[in-house]
Design a protein around this nucleic acid. Structure first.
Length: 422
RNA sequence: GGGGGAAUGUCCCGAGCGGCAAAGGGGGCGGACUGUAAAUCCGCUGGCUAUGCCUUCGUAGGUUCGAGUCCUACUUCCCCCA
């Protein structure tokens, strides 16, 4: 029920690793869960909303918990929220999310599924992961039956006191009936997964605590075995920012949505104070190695950041992509050379011959949103072509400006795109 | 059902006597300083074929030379009364 007690000495590899690395915020019963894990019979699930076309770093923490579970002999169950996403979780949200169409949810689900194959081994074996979708059972529920069999176990009085509900009420913010039902469905999922897979634990972010405990409670009332809750801390950067945003928006775990190079850069640009914590949470490096990296001081900590970027990128995009991103970064930042593996935008030969205005070129490269913004950036000295600051907004780029077949466009010191005639 | 409020720059919060591309924050982007960090300081933060043109203040009309600002209807949300 509380933050892990210093006196607690886990016997299972699973809890030992999770606690040591900082994944644990709260657990409903450390000893009980530890015993099950040590006995090698831990099957645990985490639910994933299908609200976006792919997952981003915000979901990485729970994914890593599942990966650790598998590595330490347990069976991970990533649950697709194909059913619950149709309802919408009010936890931690000020207002109701727009209702997503069923087609959107299904499309999102397909994108999200792909991510897991990189972290988990699926199959029929004892520790192989399985990925059910709660639409399989939720959409088949009959309202009256559900109310009689499940609904009677929920106390509205208690539900009203849950943070996700209470906060909305206190702030006089709308909470629709459909959202109010979300926790009932999630609780039911837990019980259903126990029936189907023998799943006994649910993990998730700390904002899920209430929903998870509700599930444990429902399990007890419905005669399921003892269930467990294990939550991870809410992740912020050491300067208190919400984690996982870049100039391009969310940090997606999908190469089509965020290039491996940009993903690598995201980790490379971590704040000093976050490096140790991130190494523990987002890589599988051994603890003594992390301890060594964490001790690096001043500019040396950049080495630790590179390791973080390499390891984190390798997990999502593979070793090769990580190495290439590292090399691109090395050339770009340490040698100041235009690496030909930088993100590239093609321009037609004809356009290149005719000449492209600088402002337009930066818009095409996606470095600025409009020519107006490009103009402002020129005024502020933020744009460079082949490393020369752009001073004339009416300058025109031609084929002759290319070095090794490409023109390097930069905004600021970190973002570069190659413009190539094709 | 009756009465009273509110909706602002498509990231958010928020000022706005009838002359408004619209104060101020936060966030974001850029510059300086550094180590591709943090903190700090400075600039920018509607669009365009650009000394001008176009589109923005919940929606649709109206008054006016001129409307975010006044009037009418509608939508949504909040508060009080029944």
């Amino acid at each position: 029920m509380s933050v892990v007690k210093p006196s607690f000495r886990p016997k299972s590899d699973f809890l030992a690793a999770l606690i040591e690395r900082g994944y644990v915020h709260q657990c409903s019963d450390y000893e009980g869960l530890d015993a099950r894990a040590a006995a090698g019979e831990l099957i645990a699930y985490i639910g994933f909303d299908c609200t976006a076309p792919s997952l981003h770093v915000g979901s990485l923490l729970p994914i890593m918990m599942l990966a650790w579970l598998q590595r330490t002999g347990g069976k991970p169950v990533p649950l697709m929220g194909g059913g619950t996403t149709r309802v919408g979780d009010p936890s931690g949200k000020d207002e109701a999310r727009k209702m997503l169409s069923i087609e959107t949810i299904e499309a999102n689900k397909a994108g999200i599924r792909k991510v897991f194959s990189k972290f988990l081994t699926f199959g029929d074996g004892r520790t192989d992961a399985v990925m059910p979708d709660n639409a399989e059972w939720l959409t088949k529920l009959n309202y009256i039956d559900f109310l009689r069999d499940v609904g009677r176990h929920f106390s509205v009085n208690r539900m009203m006191s849950m943070d996700s509900v209470k906060l909305r009420l206190e702030r006089d913010q709308e909470l629709s009936f459909i959202e109010f039902n979300y926790m009932c469905l999630q609780a039911y999922d837990f019980v259903e997964l126990n029936r189907r897979y023998g799943c006994i634990a649910q993990m998730g972010g700390s904002d899920q605590w209430g929903n998870i405990v509700t599930g444990i409670d429902l399990g007890r009332r419905m005669g399921a075995p003892q269930l467990f809750a294990l939550t991870s801390p809410l992740l912020t950067t050491s300067s208190g920012q919400k984690m996982g945003k870049t100039h391009a928006g969310a940090v997606w775990l999908e190469a089509d949505m965020l290039s491996p190079y940009d993903y690598w850069q995201f980790w490379r640009n971590a704040e000093d104070g976050d490096v140790g914590r991130f190494l523990r949470l987002f890589t599988f490096l051994p603890m003594d190695e992390i301890a060594r990296l964490e001790k690096l001081d001043g500019a040396e900590i950049n080495e630790a950041k590179k390791t973080l970027a390499n390891e984190a990128t390798a997990l999502v995009h593979g070793r090769e992509a990580a190495a290439q991103a590292a090399e691109t970064a090395r050339k770009t930042f340490e040698e100041g050379v235009a690496a030909d593996t930088l993100p590239t935008v093609g321009v037609s030969m004809a356009e290149m011959e005719a000449g492209v205005g600088v402002l337009t070129a930066f818009v095409m490269a996606g470095l600025v949103a409009s020519t107006g913004e490009a103009r402002r950036q020129v005024k502020g000295g933020g744009l460079r072509v082949n490393d020369d600051v752009v001073t004339d907004e009416r300058a025109v780029l031609r084929g002759a400006d290319a070095r090794d077949g490409a023109i390097k466009l930069s905004i600021g010191k970190k973002r570069h795109v190659l413009l190539r005639a094709k």
